[in-house]
Simulated scan of single mutants.
Amino acid sequence: MRVRGLSYTTPEGRPLLEGADLDLRPGETTGLVGPNGSGKTTLLRCVYGTLRPTAGTITVDGADLLAMGPKDRARRVATVPQENRPEFELTVREIVLMGRAPHKRFWEPDSAADGRAADEAMARLGITELAGRAFPSLSGGERQRALVARALLQDPALLVLDEPTNHLDIRYQLEILGLVRELGTTNLLALHDLNLAAYYCDRIHVLHGGRIVAAGPPAEVLTAELLAEVYQVTAEVAVHPRTGAPTITYLPPGLP
């Protein structure tokens, strides 16, 4: 995916995103980080189509994403949104099969091939035993796995995840991000936890005030100076002796 000059201004004239440029390389995981209100979710919503940018271009495999209809876009971009309210009484398998909808005609029934693809996706995400369970009965981590399996059935060029670890305990945070890394898809995700972003992302883009202010490998981007400027915190950044990833320790204000 290639993004150039992406901007979004609200109907009231408030700029939420200004001139964002980013490139996603095939098979890599790219993270968006930044304080609350920095523009992460706005950028993702422009990519997966719930917001129409006021300026800029987005291409996926050379195709103009902004010129596509919803169905064509869904064939290229699969989304796991931030809020997944479990108010519908569908089974996990039915939820996963919804991923085939962009590739089917309206009301076209699921085929045997669709069923096999759903079973394979559930096995890949480790939720085969949950196939008959009602989606609302699942834990947060189980729901996230089901939604990632649904996204895989779209056979997308790009997988977009908005705060995929939100409201999950640390075990499920590590499991979900580990699974996403292992899928082999090209991934774009927004994260709050910088240490998770440093470990699981190949590249990081830092947003601040609606602009991308830094981009590159985690070790180059996540510096004490940048954290002080963007997050207004004092921090120490070291290399973890076992993972080799940058590790951030935040220091309380006033510490000598």
Rank of each mutant, 00 (worst) to 15 (best):
R100T: 08
L255N: 07
T91H: 04
F135A: 08
V60F: 12
P102C: 05
G49C: 04
D119W: 00
E18T: 10
M98R: 01
S137Q: 14
G216M: 13
A112P: 06
Y200P: 00
V80N: 00
P218W: 11
V148S: 00
R171V: 14
V33P: 07
T234Y: 11
L153P: 08
M98Q: 06
T223G: 09
G178M: 04
G5K: 07
R143H: 11
E12A: 14
R242P: 00
Q82V: 07
Y250L: 15
Q154E: 02
R211P: 03
T41I: 02
L251K: 10
A228F: 14
A151C: 05
L189C: 02
P241W: 02
V80G: 02
R242N: 03
R133S: 12
G56S: 02
L17D: 06
T10S: 14
D64Q: 09
K104P: 01
V60C: 12
R105F: 01
H103G: 06
H208C: 08
H240W: 11
P35N: 06
G126K: 04
Q232L: 07
G132R: 11
I58L: 15
T186N: 04
L97K: 00
L158S: 03
V221F: 08
P109E: 02
I170K: 10
P246C: 03
R143K: 14
A74N: 04
G132M: 08
R116A: 15
T30L: 14
Y199N: 10
D169K: 01
G56T: 09
L51H: 08
E225C: 05
T185H: 14
E94L: 09
N187S: 10
L226V: 06
P26Q: 09
T9I: 14
G115V: 04
P53H: 01
R133N: 02
T30N: 05
F135Q: 02
T128H: 12
I176T: 05
R85Q: 13
D72S: 11
